[in-house]
Structures are given as C-alpha cells and as structure tokens.
Design a protein around this nucleic acid. Structure first.
Length: 642
RNA sequence: GCCGGCUUAGCACAGCUGGUAGUGCGCCUGAUUUGUAAUCAGGGGGUCGGGGGUUCGAAUCCCUCAGCCGGCACCA
C-alpha cells in the first residue's frame, strides 16, 4: 500500500504497487505525457519503474536537468539504433552523455562520412516519429555476454564481461534494437524531438592509444528547438572569439608551416606579450623573487640526472654538435635554476630563495595536439622555483597562493577554482615525506582561506600540487597556474644548504607558474575579452584622428605628446571620412577613439569615444591622459566611463 | 602519434561530371576635404600547399609528403 510523497509535500495513497507512469497519470494527463523518467527516493528511474513501498517520488520532465540528461542518453541510443539499421554490420560500443550532448562509438569497416551522418540523422528522425516503446528487462551477466556475443556485438560482450559476475544486467529495447544500459531512458522514442548530429571523429577503444580506433559520432540534444538554437549560437560566438582568428584580424601574430607549433609575434602582439612580462616582473619583484636566466641548451647528461630524458626524452628536442656532444633544448626551467642555486654555499638564513625566469622552453609535442597558441612546441613560462626548508612550506605556499589570486584578479578573473592533486600511483619518495608535503600544502591552502576540490592521484611524480583553474567570460575552464611541492628534484640534482646545526640538508623546492605558458595565457585573454583587451593591455590604447587635413598639425602634435607620456597611441591623418576611421579602429578594438575637428583644435580639446560606441564628450588632452592613467593604474577596475 | 576533413590572391570564399582561374573586402592610383561603424572611379595581384603520376590536356582524378582544422591519445 505505497504512500507516495510528491515534491510539494502532498501525499497520495495507492492500494497496490504503482509505476511512475501511473503516479504521473494520477496527477494529470499532461504530466503523464511530459514524463520522461522518475526520481524515486532520489534515484533516477524509468517511468515503468514499479514502486512497491512508501516513497518520495518526483516526475522528471524536460524542465528538469535530469530530464535533459535522460533525453541525451536516449538520443545516443536512437543514434545507435539508426546506425545499426543503416549499417547492420557496424558494432556498437558505448554511448554516454557529455556536456551539451552525447556521443556513440562504433566499430565499422570504413569511416563514416558526412553524407552518412545526414542519412543517420534522417533515420533517427524517422525512428523517433515511429514513437517506439522503450522497454527494459534484466538478465544475468553471463547470459547477457552470450546474448551480445551471439548478436555479433563483441565490444558490448567485452564490456559486460568486465562487470562483476553476479550482477544483473539491464537491457533496453526499442523496435528491433537492444542495448546494454544502466538507464533510465525515455518511455518511447517519440519523446526525442530536438537533436542534431554534429561531427564524426576517431576515438580509441577504451581510450587507449594501443587499441583500435573506433568511429565516434557526436550529437547534441535539447528539450526544445529554442535551446538547440541557443546552443548553436553559442558555438558561433565561441568561434568568433577564437584567438587564431583574432590574432590574424588584429595583426598580433602568425604561425606558418615551416615552424609548426611556434609563433611569429608581430609588433602589436609582441607589445601585449611584453606588457604581460613587465607586469609579472613587477609583481614578482614585489613578492621577493629574483629574476634569473638559465641556458636554453645544456648537455644531455644534466637531463639524464634530472630524470627528464628518461621520462620525456621522446618529447625533447635534441641536437648533436659538430664535436659529437649531445645537447638538449630545455623543456623545463627547474634543472637550470637548481644549478644557479648550487653555486656557492647556501645557508638556511638565505632561504627562501625565489628564482623566477621568463624561460623559453621547447617540447616536441605530438603533431596532433598542436592548437594555435594553446598548445605549442616553443613557449615562454613565467616559471619560478623557490628553495625553502620543510618548515617553510606552509608560509611560502600561502605567500604564493595570495600572489596567484591577486594576479588573476588584476586580469579580471574573479572566478578561480583550486584543485588539490595528491600523490599519484607512480611516484618517488617515501610515504612519510609525501604526507608531510601534502599536509603542509593543504594547511597552506586552508590558511590562505581558499576552498579547493580534491583531484586524487593527479599530483606530479615528485610532489603534490595545487592547480588553479580560471573561468572565462563564456564559462569555459582554463587551468593556468600551479604550485607544486617538490621533495625530490633538489636531491637528485645535488642541491644543499647548511642548517643551523651546520648540517648539509636538501632544500624543498616549490615550482610555481601563474600564467603557465605566456602564449597560452595570451590566447585565453584574447578569447576571454573577445579581442577587446583592457586598455592597460591593449597594443594601441588610443587613436587620434583628423576630420580633414586642416587638423593634421594638431593631431600630430597631440599624438606625439601622448606617446611621450608613455601611452600607446597612433595618429590617423588619412584622407578618409571620420565614420570610416571610427569603424576601422572600432573593429581593431582600440579602446579610445579621439577625434579632432576644427572646433576641437580651436579649444585644444579631443572628442572622446569608446570602442563600444559610447560618446564621452570632449576633454583636453591632459584630462584624457589623467583619466586614462587612472584606468591603467587600476588595471581597468576604474575606467574613463566611470 | 591515430581517425576524418581541409589547403585556390593579403583575408573570406566560388570554380558542376578534367578543356588553360573568378567574386567580395583589403592593397595601389586618382578624384573628393569629409563631424563619430564603410565616398566614388580606375588599376595591379594567383607556378590553385610541395613532389610525383594518369591524360592530348589536371585547381579538378590517383599516389605521396607537409601544414592546418575537428576529435582521440599525450601534456614534465
């Protein structure tokens, strides 16, 4: 005699066990139609699920995030059903939901084409229209293995065979198609109305590059057409922010095939890059760092000693000199910094010693992983290595965590998540040392007053690390900064200091990066701001333009004066209509557009307009400089518009 | 590295089943002296990613290499 408690607290009494579907029907026929699944005591179930005892029940519709999840999952099934119907000898594997959609991996004798994709999607529409009932049944594991093996679905059989032997397996069927699945699923295919196949791609079976490559079809599915359109629009907007595109449009940098994974910086791009470095140099200096510079090319033996050659040799650029000596181009800065630390005798009184370098490193990244500035083979790190005693781990970590967060704030990233990555399965050093490092880093994180999530087993092989993840303007996550406690490398490379009892001791080393890769951080900034860099970073901060050539002298003079005062300013004297100039510089994302016509010349003024089209009226060049300086000094927290 | 797609003027792209390359913007020249997102007219510009092959003839078909794009794998 189950008593059903609904989300609003109301209760319904039934004389016998009921299904979710029946509960929905008892509330209303509209709800019954809208029901995609149920939530019984918090657990997501099919609408056909039979409730035997008193329970809290919610009807899940497409308004519910879980409902959308169910739609996507069921659409993945629909995709598999369509593929099997068009290509009967294709084998199915897995088809999970992902952010905004789903995918399904197939094994097939040839790759699917975009034409296939269109045909599959048409088939899916047809199958959905047929509104086939989705049924669930359970089977003992071994029977299920046999069942799929007989169907010729060897991948599926392998998946089931890896499930513990005594578990029951649930199978879902729709029409003549059956798949293994945990569920739940929509009650019938007619509930699947808004979906679209996006792309085909290769993907390794079980995610292992030693395995065969499957055909993965990606799709998206939504509760209604409007959501789908919004999603497609979102993708378009993201494309407009693509740093490769903006980099070309704004003449910031380029890449070319003779230097894959490397960057040719153009004057405007390099201006921004240098601004980033100047900024970080200043912040580092304030935080007690000393800048150093280590060789780009060092004998391979050093990399042998550090362990890099063994672990990452495949990804290092090596070069043999005419005298038959093997050198490596540095893929990391830490061994170099340790060499600097090792010169002379260090006392515990000297610690912490903080070395920072804008070190250009080269890594032979796999060709398929290269991606604009986000993943390159030659890049610049704002790398720092801090040598401390064990007792200093906590304080020094707090010091650096504060620095990191404060720097991200200057760039407008206020949403920063921290992940704590602890000991990985493959590691060096004793467990006691790891415990020490982890608890010190954890204590530091807590002392810094920040929350973190655990990223278990993802620490570096030499120590635990904090990972700093920024959220950008359109909600994407970017992992940038890192703070790692290293109790291994200094010893390996023979670094020592003398402690208060005159004993030789091995220092602890913190690895710290804030931008990470400057190239990548630059790209993130471009995408975050859609190319509209804040004035303090913009390659050109203002353009002074004439209306006719009568203002040429004045504009030239003003532009020169602004430049002399340290601003990045250009003059536009071209014989063009002012509307044309405004449009052009707006498209170049120049923060401030300064127009001088006869009236301004007569009164020693500038007409000031922002790139977003806002008219700030007229002001003297001096006032403009003064107000812009406030904006630059506050790094955009206060602008000319305020 | 693996799977698939793509590569035509500075940029964005067109070029059907093979018949000697086109549009828009930019660029250059001239006219215009212009008040806040495109003034008008004229002109130049491509060994169609590299190499090889098929063919009377290749941007177009085939092979191969490279780069890029989308994924996968990798990421000290």
């Amino acid at each position: 005699m189950p008593v059903i408690t609904l989300p609003d607290g109301s209760q319904r009494r039934f004389d016998q066990p009921v299904t979710v579907d029946e509960v929905a029907a008892s509330i209303g026929s509209g709800l019954r139609k809208a029901a995609l699944a149920g939530r019984v005591n918090g657990k997501l179930v099919d609408t056909s699920f039979r409730i035997e005892h008193d329970a809290e029940v919610a009807i899940v519709t497409d308004k519910d995030p879980d409902g959308l999840e169910v739609i996507r999952h069921s659409t993945a099934h629909l995709l598999a059903q369509a593929v099997k119907s068009l290509f009967p000898d294709a084998q199915v594997t897995i088809g999970p939901t992902i952010e905004d959609g789903f995918y399904y991996d197939f094994s097939y004798k040839r790759p699917f084409t975009t034409e296939d994709l269109a045909a599959i999607e048409a088939k899916m529409v047809e199958l959905a229209k047929a509104d086939q009932k989705v049924t669930r049944r359970v089977m003992p594991r071994d029977e299920a293995v046999e069942f799929f093996r007989n169907m010729g679905e060897h991948y599926k059989a392998e998946i089931i065979a890896s499930i513990p032997p005594n578990e029951e397996i649930s199978l879902y069927g729709q029409g003549d198609w059956v798949d293994l699945c945990r569920g739940p699923h929509v009650p019938s295919t007619g509930k699947l109305k808004v979906f679209k196949l996006m792309k085909v791609a290769g993907a390794y079976w079980r995610g292992d590059s030693r395995n065969e490559m499957l055909q993965r079809i990606y799709g998206t599915a939504w509760a209604d057409k409007k959501q789908l359109e919004e999603y497609l629009h979102r993708i378009e907007e993201a494309e407009k922010r693509d740093h490769r595109r903006i980099g070309r449009e704004l003449d910031l940098f380029h890449q070319q095939e003779e230097a894959p994974g490397a960057v040719f910086w153009h004057p405007y791009g390099w201006t921004v890059f240098q601004t980033l470095i100047a900024y970080m140099r200043e912040r580092n200096r304030e935080a007690g760092f000393q800048e150093v510079n280590a060789p780009e090319l060092m004998d391979a033996s050093l990399w042998q000693q550090s362990g890099h050659l063994e672990k990452f040799g495949e990804n290092m650029f090596l070069t043999k000199t005419p005298d038959e000596r093997l050198y490596a181009i540095k893929p990391m800065n830490c061994p170099g910094h340790v060499q600097i630390f090792k010169q002379g005798i260090r006392s515990y009184r000297d610690l912490p010693i903080r070395f920072g370098e804008f070190g250009k490193v080269h890594r032979y990244e796999p060709s398929g992983s290269l991606h604009g500035l986000m993943r390159v083979r030659a890049f610049t790190q704002d790398d720092a290595h801090i040598f401390i005693t064990e007792e200093q781990i906590k304080d020094e970590s707090v010091h650096n965590i504060r620095l990191l967060l404060s720097i991200y704030e200057d760039f407008g990233f206020r949403n920063v998540r921290v992940k704590f990555a602890d000991r990985p399965p493959k590691r060096v050093g004793s467990d006691e040392v790891w415990t020490l490092a982890e608890s010190a880093l954890k204590a530091a994180t807590e002392a810094a007053g920040i929350e973190y999530t655990l990223n278990p087993g993802e620490g570096a092989f030499y120590g635990p690390k904090l990972e700093f993840v920024l959220k950008d303007a359109i909600g994407r996550d970017w992992q940038c900064g890192t703070l790692q406690v290293d109790l291994n490398m200094p010893g390996r490379l023979g670094a020592h200091y003398i402690d208060e009892t005159s004993q030789k001791r091995t220092p602890v080393m913190l690895h710290r990066a804030i931008f990470g890769s400057l190239e990548r951080f630059f790209a993130i900034l471009l995408e975050h701001h859609a190319g509209r860099l804040p004035a303090w970073l913009a390659p050109v901060q203002a353009v002074v333009m004439t209306i006719t050539d009568r203002q040429n002298d004045y504009v030239t003079r003003v532009a020169e004066s602004l430049k002399k005062q340290g601003l990045r300013v250009e003059a536009d004297l071209r014989n063009e209509k002012v509307g044309f100039k405004i449009r052009e510089h707006t498209l170049r994302r120049v923060p401030y557009l300064l127009v001088a016509g006869d009236k301004e010349v007569a009164a020693n003024l500038l007409s000031v307009r922002t790139r977003s089209g806002k008219d700030l009226g007229t002001m003297s060049p001096d006032t403009f400089v003064e107000r812009l300086r406030v904006e630059l000094d506050s790094r955009g927290r206060r602008t000319l518009e305020d």
